[in-house]
């Protein structure tokens, strides 16, 4: 405030204020931002590089007559015509990945709900650490555990039990696979590998539901469960779906552990006990044969391309839905 001496008239308004010293259009981007900006391109370049490489290397079989057909046939003698169909592998992958995802998503939702509202902080934190730990176990360890420890047990006990109780469901009927390796075991192993990511994303989605909404629900005499069911799950819906897609991407992309327990049969398995294959595990365990058969290598590269496409797609959908890529603002009551 300027001092206006008493008794004097207030001075007339001065000239219009000077324009700002720095024009509005002036760039004020700091140097460090210029230097760091290209870093944002690195992931893009990496993905593009891999994709271009795969496209280039796979040109032999790409768009071959049966690539999108259900048949897969490989004759190393070269006497038979070689044909490679990716569809079979995608179907086999889904046969393993979808049930694994369904079970993992159910478990994860239950754990996320308990951690967010029911468990006291300490046990909740322990459960979080333990599920995150599952993600840290190298997949080859899961594979060897599945092959050595679980497979015999699955053959002798788990398969007969499931067959006994649920054998009437299509896909769960016989015949059993006595050695224990097969889709069922792969599903079981995959559950462990999916649960960390789905639990983490679901937990954060439920947590990010605005506290205001939760309080308003409780203030109306709702229980925590009713608030969970009617408000939290509803508001977090997108994030929960995102978690499922990320989990599916994880399941479809897993190769080593699945290769070790699935039994490597290239066909559409008659039931869930039978040995089968997946796109990712097939690429992994056929790699050494392809050393001798260039045409097989071409096919594997091409399969990798399909796998890459699937994984990127699922991941992008998952990230978008769960808001991993952006800051999610879930608005509750928006004031005036």
């Amino acid at each position: 405030m300027r001092e206006v001496p008493e008794g004097q008239p207030i001075p007339p308004a001065g000239p219009a204020p000077a324009p700002p010293a720095v024009p509005f259009s002036a760039s004020r981007t700091p140097l460090v931002q210029w230097l760091l900006s290209p870093i944002a391109l690195i992931p893009l370049l990496l993905v593009a590089f891999v994709a271009i490489f795969l496209l280039w290397k796979s040109q032999l079989v790409w768009f071959g007559p049966s690539f999108f057909g259900i048949n897969y046939f490989f004759d190393p003698t070269g006497l038979q015509p070689n044909q490679f169909g990716v569809t079979l592998f995608v179907v086999d992958s889904l046969i393993v990945a979808l049930p694994a995802l369904a079970i993992a998503a159910g478990l994860s939702l239950a754990m996320a709900v308990s951690i967010v509202v029911y468990l006291p902080p300490m046990p909740g934190r322990v459960l979080t650490i333990l599920t995150n730990l599952l993600a840290g176990i190298p997949s080859v360890v899961y594979g060897i555990w599945g092959y050595v420890v679980l497979a015999p047990y699955f053959g002798s006990t788990v398969q007969p039990a499931i067959f006994g109780f649920l054998g009437w469901i299509p896909g769960l009927g016989g015949p059993l696979s006595p050695g224990g390796v097969g889709s069922l075991l792969a599903i079981f192993i995959l559950i462990f590998m999916i649960v960390p990511i789905t639990t983490a994303v679901m937990r954060e989605s439920l947590r990010s539901v605005p506290h205001d909404l939760v309080e308003a629900g409780l203030a109306l005499g709702a229980t925590q469960w009713e608030v969970m069911r009617r408000i939290r799950l509803r508001v977090a819906r997108r994030g929960l779906w995102g978690a499922a897609f990320l989990g599916l991407g994880r399941a479809i992309g897993e190769s080593v552990a699945v290769a070790m327990v699935i039994g490597a049969s290239v066909w559409i398995p008659p039931n869930v006990y039978a040995p089968s294959t997946t796109l990712a595990s097939f690429i992994f365990y056929q790699l050494d044969s392809s050393f001798y058969y260039p045409v097989l290598l071409q096919a594997l590269i091409e399969f990798s391309l399909v796998l890459l496409g699937l994984a990127v797609l699922l991941n992008l959908i998952g990230q978008r839905a769960s808001g991993l890529g952006t800051t999610v603002v879930v608005t509750g009551g928006n004031g005036p």
Partner: peptide, 11 residues
Amino acid sequence: GMVFQRPVVFP
């Protein structure tokens, strides 16, 4: 019952 400072409308 309770009414809060900022209106909290459920979506």
